[in-house]
Nucleic acid binder design. Structure first.
Lengths: 147, 147
DNA sequence: CTTGATGCAAATGGTTTGCATGTTT
DNA sequence: AAACATGCAAACCATTTGCATCAAG
């Protein structure tokens, strides 16, 4: 997966390939698994393109999301984060220490089947976040439970 | 489940039973399944207690959440909503028409088992929202999108 | 009467928007 | 050239906070 691939996809969806969009895609590609907020993206982009404004980053993220190139992830109270949509995944977040685990959509298949069977609902979970306790914290805390 | 029950629970957790808290609990009880935003709550409360300030509602919601009496639900871009924690449930939200289905935590058990087995992660999903298409929209799939 | 909750106003922080200008096609 | 994207500053909206006052235990 290269920036040119992404730019091509962009064009295929009828969107223009501007400097800002290339820059956003480049940074997201560079970030790998890491999810970035609009602000973090803007900061990184500024290193190479000081003129690209935060508001443009927001608009760009919006276009790219609409185009289906990137996906949005929402963690608790934190600002929204973005990542390439190349591979869907979900998160398990430890409520105590904040550790996050990524897991495959396959894990949710039983749920999807159940919702389809019971309600005719066709689940298409884009980015789920499941709370809980990671192995370490759950070992350390025994039965007592935090908020 | 009555307001007095709730107030008792509140006291049990060492929190004070103030007018604001009673009012918030009363409205949430009255709302039933409907999830309310802080603003909606404040508006309703104003009918009986015009002096209760929105910021107090926020603080109250915070206390009640900490006390475990109410739970938070986050829908897409909308402001956070609250509901009584009497019974945990999750939501399937139609990405097209916005229809929501509530489903039981039992549906998620296979996922919880899987996360525990694979990662030692003990899931405690407080309020999940799964996107997808409701039966109706998925039947007439391919149309324009409402809000 | 002590601790904690409230009202108010003002601040915060993430995100959006109007408009004139610049860039992509 | 036409359509669209951008920079900037200002608006927006949900939520939070400092502080003086008030109510619950």
């Amino acid at each position: 997966m290269t920036i040119d691939d992404l730019v091509e996809q962009l064009r295929d969806r009828g969107q223009r390939a501007t400097t800002a969009r290339r820059a956003v895609l480049a940074e997201l590609l560079d970030a790998g698994d890491t999810h970035l907020t609009a602000d973090e993206l803007a900061r990184r982009i500024h290193a190479h393109h000081p003129a690209i404004h935060l508001s443009t980053v927001y608009r760009t993220l919006d276009s790219l999301t609409t185009a289906g190139l990137i996906a949005v992830a929402r963690f608790a109270d934190q600002p929204v984060t973005y990542h390439l949509a190349t591979e869907v995944h979900h998160h398990a977040v430890c409520a105590r220490c904040g550790a996050t685990i990524s897991f495959s959509p396959r894990v949710l298949e039983p749920v999807a089947r159940r919702l389809e069977r019971d309600y005719g609902f066709r689940a298409d979970p884009q980015h789920l976040t499941i709370q809980g306790l990671c192995a370490d914290c759950s070992a350390r805390s025994g039965q007592s439970r935090g908020s």
